[in-house]
Amino acid sequence: MKPTMPVADQHRLLSDSAVASFDGHLARAGLPPLTAGPTRVFQVNVGKLCNQRCHHCHVDAGPHQVEANMAWPTFEACLAVIRELKPTTVDITGGAPELNPHFRRFVAALRALDVPEIIDRCNLTVLMIPAQSGLASFLAEHRVRIVASLPAVNPSQTDAQRGDGVFARSIAAMRVLNDLGYGRPDSGLVLTLMSNPVGAFLPSGQSSAEARFRALLQTRHGVGFNDLIELTNMPISRFLEFLERSGNTAAYLAKLSGAFNPAAAAGLMCRDTLSVGWDGTLYDCDFNQMLEMPVSVEGSRTIFTYRRDIMDERPVRTAKHCLGCTAGQGSGCAGKTAS
């Protein structure tokens, strides 16, 4: 398996690009540098193991990532901080987070803590793995909101990004979820689709994409969902490799820079998110995690040494990849950031 471009090379490519720094974009718009407020979303990246190996993955996840996965003592440390912080959302991501052997135990513990919203960032196909039988029912029983990746409503674009046969298995998984009540408006079980562009271009617009996905998935495949969010591809990791391979790096960064939207900066996820890496290191977001940019506060850089008193109002660490979150309608783990 070819390793992803070293992180140092990713930083060099970003810093060498012709576009102005992220903080420079903020300053030109009259905005101050970013700071993080109180944590509302506690995001846990439980590891890089995944049954897929998507071409755009910013985590470099795949079946080969058998070591970079969270151990139970780290989950316990997360639970201790969650008890203290009482976030409105615990957002579990990966990899395919369900493949972490402690996933179900963690979800059950969160439900016992009465966390208002538990999110599982699901690739859909993991629900169809025989060894994961009962997973969909488990998620329904624990009232977990599923945020599921589906970039397009056609097999060719979906499979081009996520692997052969992924579209068909994703539709099969949506049927399983629909049968359990997910995607049905009155069930209380929320299925959110997450779409990101299949290439070096920006998302189409969240509300129009949701309407198009809803109509086409229902008429062509008879499956439904509750809502749809769009994410911009970040110029890091495998997507940055694609940009380099296809000669699109400069044009894509120029596109992100040209589409800088000050209104999108107000709703950036890093303002109220704490992101925990599989080894317990703390970050401002999942993208900084992959660029190995831990939080700026040196005295609170792991979940084991977390100190709320010095974390709130901390400066957010930024680099040019942040332009992905402020382009056009804005982008974050909850979808667009500008109204």
């Binding site: 397009a152 409503v153 056609n154 060719s156 674009q157 562009p197 290439g199 271009f201 920006l202 998302p203 189409s204 617009g205 129009s208 994409a209 198009r212």
Partner: peptide
């Protein structure tokens, strides 16, 4: 081509 992709059009 770029504008069509960015408005969610498929290659088809």
């Amino acid at each position: 081509t770029g504008a069509s992709l960015e408005s969610g059009c498929s290659r088809g």
